[in-house]
């Protein structure tokens, strides 16, 4: 028998504990890869696009397969995009791998004979559409679940999109700094990162505020993030490492010329924050009591 009191809040566990951690990682890597691709494409930064391709194809795809109970049947998840956001998500992953792969193919030595280039309209358009769906679908997948009030908000897709773009910008910056780039203006990337950080702060704040006031179950979930069992990960991971440290680093960068190691540490903290955000939101998701 399960020791569950139907008058009390019960947390979901399948999507965050044990093998569920693979799913958290899959959500994180999907957002990171999609965000990195979009930012790198905007900057025309080939190493970023290549990295994004592998993050999604190997990281996101691999961790998602590790999570599934029957991984060899994954192809069945393509079959119901008309109603299921998981189905739309797996289509976005496949589309991303296919179209970004096609986009990159002419850049591979020996494939320059191909009749398209990296910026061919149709392939690039489909790759961008796949990337947008990839960074958005997780938020929609959670947002439509009305049995868990903390997730069931219109802000959820926005939150995941912003965190994907933030992670993508951070990783782009990390790649640029780490590879000693001289072509792309790093200050532009820093400025974009600053705006995404500010937007993330506003959306995280709005999400917590609205959840706290909309429903007692969602309020309980917020309480878990701020003072409860998830608070070390949320306060330490999301608020301090994910937001406060990167904001401080980017603010200092406006005044001082910080060493690369400090900048890279800020990027690492931002990525930890992105993972922590997914983890804590999934961990704090509670069902409405039955009675």
């Amino acid at each position: 028998m399960k020791s569950y009191n139907p008058t009390e809040f019960a947390f979901q566990t399948e999507w965050v504990e044990k093998r569920g951690l693979w799913l958290v990682m899959a959500f994180f890597l999907g957002g990171l890869g999609g965000g990195l691709y979009l930012v790198s494409l905007y900057l025309n930064y080939l190493p970023g696009i290549v990295t994004a391709f592998f993050i999604v194809a190997v990281g996101k795809g691999g961790t998602h397969l590790l999570y599934l109970g029957k991984p060899l049947r994954f192809w069945r998840a393509f079959l119901k995009p008309q109603t299921s956001w998981i189905s739309r998500g797996i289509i976005s992953v496949a589309g991303f791998v296919l179209f970004v792969g096609l986009q990159l193919l002419p850049e591979v030595p020996g494939f320059s004979f191909l009749p398209w280039t990296m910026h061919s309209g149709l392939i690039q358009g489909l790759a961008i559409a796949s990337a947008v769906l990839l960074i958005a679908y997780t938020g929609f997948a959670l947002g439509v679940v009305n049995s868990i009030p903390f997730w069931n908000t219109a802000l959820m897709p926005l939150l995941f999109i912003i965190y994907s773009l933030l992670g993508g910008t951070g990783l782009t910056l990390g790649l640029l700094l780490g590879t000693g780039n001289t072509v792309i203006n790093i200050e532009v990337v820093e400025a974009v990162a600053r705006w995404f950080l500010l937007t993330a702060i506003v959306i995280v704040g709005a999400y917590l505020w609205i959840s706290y006031h909309v429903n007692p179950v969602a309020k309980y979930s917020v309480f878990q993030l701020i003072k409860g069992r998830v608070s070390p990960y949320f306060i330490g991971g999301v608020l301090v490492l994910g937001l406060a440290v990167p904001v401080t680093v980017t603010a200092l960068e406006l005044v001082y010329n910080l060493p690369y190691t400090v900048m890279l540490s800020g990027v690492a903290c931002e990525l930890i924050g992105g993972f922590s955000l997914r983890y804590t939101i999934l961990k704090a998701g509670a069902y409405t009591p039955l009675v």
């Binding site: 569950y4 019960a10 979901q12 399948e14 999507w15 044990k18 093998r19 999570y67 599934l68 109970g69 029957k70 991984p71 049947r73 994954f74 069945r76 998840a77 299921s84 998981i86 997948a141 679940v145 009305n146 049995s147 868990i148 998701g285 069902y287 409405t288 039955l290």
Partner: peptide, 22 residues
């Protein structure tokens, strides 16, 4: 035969009536 074990249905069920057999 069609279930892949993604457990999205378990998230969507407000009655916690579904069980995953690891």
């Amino acid at each position: 035969d069609k279930c892949i074990g993604c457990r999205y249905c378990m998230m969507a069920c407000p009655y916690k009536a579904r069980y995953f057999n690891d």
